[in-house]
Design a protein around this nucleic acid. Sequence first.
DNA 1: TCTGGGGTCCTAGGACCC
DNA 2: TCTGGGGTCCTAGGACCC
Length: 420
Amino acid sequence: MFALVDCNNFYVSCERIFHPELEGKAVVVLSNNDGCVVSRSNEAKAWIPMGAPAFQFEEVFREKNIEVFSSNYALYGNMSNRVMNTLLSFTPDVEFYSIDESFLWFPNSDMDFQSKGIEIREKILKHTTIPTCVGFAPTKTLSKAANLIAKKFIDQTQGVYVIDSEEKRIKALRWLKVEDVWGIGRQISKKLKARNILTAYDFTQLPDSYLRKEFSVVLLRLKKELCGEPCLGFEEEVPRKSLATTRTFESNLGEWDEIKERVSTFSSSCAEKLRKHDLVANAVMVFLKTNRHRKDQGQYSNSIVVPLPSPTNSDILLSKYATNGLRQIFKREFLYKKAGVIMLDLQADENLQLNLFRPKAYQNEDKQRELMSVMDRLNRKLGQKKVKLASQDLRRTWKMKQEKLSKAYLSNWNELLEVE
DNA sequence: TCTGGGGTCCTAGGACCC
DNA sequence: TCTGGGGTCCTAGGACCC
């Protein structure tokens, strides 16, 4: 059996840890730049839709007395680790699926899963105060559905639901709307609903050949998963394939110098992440876009992949190749709202294959390595990215909008909780 | 005026090979 | 007038997830 353990309203729950007075009150957490609502307490769900642009709902926040926070990823990441560590005390087979949910794998199928689920919930609550829900089922997709049921009917289920019989499986599928199936998003549910496929059960009645022809092998697999035939296995930790730094700008940017500076900074940030994970990249992708919400302005969006002559994680080289790429897609006549740099084709630094014919930019590669490691040490010690490339904004005029940021209670000595 | 960021997987089509 | 068959690899774009 798989168990899916999912934290309830995770970011909001994290904020409540250090603001217990917000228990039972409406709370929301915003995305980067304080742009959209990305987490809502149950009380806030009545007033605020998921993904709501914050600026459109300021009045509602005020009128309904809704507490608003900027995203505090240092806090959420730390709490996520604590939750995941608690899960490891139940089984070593834990797959960390996202910041707030994990799959657990139990090979023994004649356990009392209901009690096990309650035990898991209670232990996480005791260790972290984070409320969770647990869904058990023989496939991952069904465990997702079970989790949804546990959450929707939390009073009856005590936050745990087990699909362990044909009867319960059918009952769950008849209840589950097709758009709420894990793996069916907006486009596909629209197409399905147009054909009068409304529930997960309806979906499982479609013939294999039809799914294969009209959709893809992905949906065929999904059907099998919902029918109880596992197609998705327990995943050991897989090496990651890409890594990115992308941002929406606070205002529209048109100047080459400004955008070049952003791209250089994004490259630098990617390079740092690569070194942190002992990885090197074989290619970098750069993209930029205009503001798609401004219909009155000209629209343009483009990206380019720049292959690297030899894999690297040096700020200097990555910034150089990324800005070279940018130069090829930048057009003067537009105003830009977003740009990003993506590291592609990653590999472990220790497996590095050197290039016999290294280009000029790589000639002092060894020195660059030393330089980067000194830079990382200094920045770790001094904080706040004190040492940067000259191509970056040295006066640090760029700052994310984070007007409602809570403290880094768990990762900064200067921001520890004070108790009177 | 203000609208997030970071991932994965699959497919179709083009370029290439013999 | 008639112009093959069978492959691989790469990429862009689109779908999905949290």
